[in-house]
Write a protein that binds this DNA or RNA. Structure first.
Lengths: 191, 191
DNA sequence: CGTCTATTTGAATGTACTCAAAAGCGGTGG
DNA sequence: CCACCGCTTTTGAGTACATTCAAATAGACG
């Protein structure tokens, strides 16, 4: 499955494929189990084979802010911590039982040396991520909470089945109470 | 100058350096001149040698939202338009007389083929950009307008000399009127 | 110096938050 | 199978944050 994911973006010989597979480490998580905790150095980029994860930041006041989520066929990490090898400021936790394939920082650097096509692969991945982040920033600065909610569920129709409302609210930058009002309002509008 | 910028991130032979230089096109802009307009396909990644540019989105209501700005030694483009070669949804305009070095999409793809180190270069650039965007998203969802303003001027102390307040406001996702109030408030706090 | 645009100020309004309490829902154990 | 517990969502009221509109002031440019 992950090979398919990679081969959609770059071409690899059989030997290169084997090389890639050899550095992957499988990791299984139970619901509510942490993958990364604030203060850890994030050692891995994790590819989600199965399950659902959430990354979030806890501020001084103890408020929880959802930065990202990841479903099947997505990658997740604290990218700041991973790339700079500094302590994470974010937590990553499984919301469902999950199976991940992980790439360690050192192994990845070695892989870049040995199979330069992976530079390309990650460049393409970062580009795609950058485009999505750009759109999210635009939404944040140009839309109301209600509009951002509509855009989010339009983009990820299954999200509400997998992530509790309070986390959707924190992803949107609004409070759970306000999200509840938005939902009441929009369900009334449909009728 | 741009070579220095590249060589800080990757190693290149003299021939590779020459190859890179050969695909660059110089472009000069006057203040208020557009580099990209909504509807164009963004053909170039542009490196800023000198000057200052702003990218913004104009919504249905005619409101202007500043997505990015770029000063010396930064790159700017409509990344969605450039990478996917689709019409731009954003405008890019020079706020000061500017000198750019541009890389065309086709040339860049060819460069990736001929000098794979540039895959690495752009991967690193995208990673750095991703980290910055991530932080901006966190600020957007976790801070008030006043806090975002303080964080922005702390990060870019010279920004207020180069970009009018109404654009700083739209970058922060607030109105110019409200930014003016924030500034009044914080100048009073200092005393 | 006059014109144009940007910023400031003030007042009224709307958007989103806080706090508190009630209702709903899911899991667990009796 | 049902009752209870803990946690999430909903509801309501009051408040704070941020916007709109309009007018006044300040700055920039020719």
């Amino acid at each position: 499955m992950i090979l398919d994911h990679v081969l959609r973006r770059i071409e690899l010989t059989d030997a290169e494929q084997t090389r890639f597979i050899s550095i992957l480490k499988i990791r299984k998580l139970l619901p509510r189990q942490y993958l990364v905790q604030q203060g850890d150095v994030c050692q891995y980029e994790s590819y989600v084979c199965k399950g659902f994860l959430r990354s979030f930041y806890v501020d001084e006041r103890g408020n929880d802010h959802t930065l990202h989520f990841a479903m099947e066929d997505w990658w997740i990490s604290d990218s700041t911590s991973f790339h700079l090898q500094i302590p994470a400021t974010r937590n990553i936790v499984a919301l469902e039982a999950s199976v991940l394939l992980q790439v360690e920082k050192n192994d990845l650097e070695q892989l870049y040396q040995d199979v330069p096509a992976f530079e390309r692969f990650w460049r393409i991945l970062e580009q795609k991520g950058g485009i999505a982040q750009d759109q999210r920033i635009l939404n944040a600065i140009s839309m109301t909470g209600a509009e951002r909610y509509q855009a989010l569920i339009a983009k990820y129709p299954t999200l509400e089945q997998r992530m509790p409302q309070r986390h959707i609210a924190s992803y949107l930058g609004i409070t759970p109470v306000f999200l509840s009002q938005i939902r009441k309002q929009s369900s009334r509008d449909i009728k």
